[in-house]
Nucleic acid binder design. Structure first.
Length: 258
DNA sequence: CCGGATGTTCACCT
DNA sequence: GAGGTGAACATCCG
């Protein structure tokens, strides 16, 4: 479920963790810890206090006075704070939080906890993640930075927008929705876009994020209900095209997305 | 039963 | 270097 909209919901839902002191860490899954061992995380974080929670793209960062703990949610990771899932949209028909899917947890002095529950194990936890590996956050990228991105590569526009090193936060659903709104085919080479097309995509970006955040997440886009073999363009009724672009399943309107 | 899925990384091609 | 493909992770859904 998570793209940057969902991670932002998680971040806000976790705001009351600020000020809490970490009493204990549970890291039962070594595979979930990236570039760090469980004893190392425990040694560094136990006893420290969470001072702030940031988000860059799809990465959530818990800040203490000396460390930063990066939380990635993959496709199925969920955050459970004090026993309650921080979630507004159901990804499956049932919201099941099997305890065996708890991959990482912080227990706080005086009670309460933050638990990452992730059925598919696609997320992970990293100590002091290298933020230089992430491009500017999609919610605040400037037009100049966005235009520079498009000019530097000939990959399909969708592949560029999915590349977190270039622009952080957009996932498969949001990119399809964005390009549908902007009227650009996802297969277009980034550096062959006309200037007005680059403007159009950038201008559609923040309003789309604000709108879908207000509606409840990445799966509330206008195109989303039509992502199927029978899907038609909500704007003009044409049958949607389907294919693989940037390695991901992609739906777009062959009529108004050129 | 089978294929695909809101993500990321890496190996392996061309 | 640049770009593309497929596999891996594990579970659920149509």
């Amino acid at each position: 479920m998570p793209e940057l909209l969902e991670i932002e919901m998680y971040r806000r839902g976790a705001a009351n963790l600020v000020g809490r002191r970490i009493a204990e860490i549970e890291a039962p899954d070594d595979w979930y810890l990236k570039h760090v061992s469980a004893p190392e995380v425990e040694a560094v974080l136990t006893g420290s206090t969470i001072e702030a929670i940031d988000r860059i793209g799809k990465l959530m960062v818990l800040r203490t006075d000396t460390e930063r703990l990066g939380l990635r949610y993959g496709m199925t990771g969920r955050l459970v704070v004090d026993g309650a899932p921080v979630i507004d949209v159901l990804e499956y028909s049932a919201l099941r939080l099997d305890p065996s899917w708890n991959r990482f947890a912080l227990r706080f002095t005086g009670g309460g906890s933050a638990v990452m529950n992730d059925p598919r194990r696609l997320g992970g936890v990293e100590l002091n993640p290298d933020l230089t590996k992430l491009g500017p956050d999609a919610w605040s990228i400037s037009y100049e930075a966005f235009r520079a991105l498009t000019e530097r590569t000939g990959v399909a526009l969708k592949a560029l927008l999915l590349n977190q090193k270039r622009i952080a936060g957009l996932g498969n659903l949001l990119v399809d929705e964005l390009l549908w709104r902007a009227g650009i085919a996802p297969t277009r080479s980034a550096n062959e876009l006309r200037s007005d097309e680059v403007v159009g995509v950038h201008e559609a970006l923040v309003p789309m994020l604000n709108e879908l955040f207000g509606r409840g997440g990445s799966n509330t886009g206008d195109l989303f209900p039509e992502r199927s073999a029978e899907g038609v363009c909500p704007r003009d009724g044409h049958s949607l095209r389907h294919g693989t672009v940037g390695g991901r399943s992609t739906w777009w309107c062959p009529h108004h997305q050129q």
